[in-house]
Amino acid sequence: MNIFRLLGDLSHLLAVIILLLKIWKTRSCAGISGRSQILFAAVYTARYLDLVTSYISAYNTVMKIVFLVASYGTLYLMFLKFKATYDHNHDTFRIEFLVLPCVILALLINHDFSALEILWTFSIYLESVAILPQLFMVSKTGEAESITSHYLFALGTYRGLYLFNWIYRYYAEDHYDLIAIIAGIVQTVLYCDFFYLYITKVLKGKKLQLPA
């Protein structure tokens, strides 16, 4: 464990907590893409199946369980408890255009052609693009609440910090995983436009509003 990975994980944890608290406190999931949340639940499910096959550390196990529970909890709040507040008219990104290419890519480019490895690879590819329905929703409505912006910033920062973690591990531990690294770069790049708006607008106390 190095500082970049720890900060990355904490940023990831902060993101999911912000999202759950936002929905719980406001009793509303307005502005949140249920489609992105479905994709994230698929990502955690496919990746953390190794909870039952291999033990890494207490930290690793606890974090995996937290992300799984938080993810399904978010789906429960969005699609059952506060269903009436779900803004489905603006959440129209076709997720099959993300899921199918990720399935095909995972079958073609992986470290090993075994079920768990392919599911892990699929989850890495899918995570890199899972935020697109949410970003599409923000661009469609032209704005995002501040709390939603903080959520997106924390979530984007997490994989960005992992990039530094991978650079560190390459030199310090001779460890690297090209699939994770390339997907992580793609994932972080997708947030760049948002990061720019967040820094120039939200941090200065303004609402995140896209130019007309």
């Binding site: 690793n60 995996k64 470290h111 090993d112 490895e117 460890h175 995983d177 699939i179």
Partner: peptide, 10 residues
């Protein structure tokens, strides 16, 4: 370099 199968990250 070590094998690429190590899955110790989240």
């Amino acid at each position: 370099l070590k094998p690429k199968y190590l899955k110790d990250e989240l």
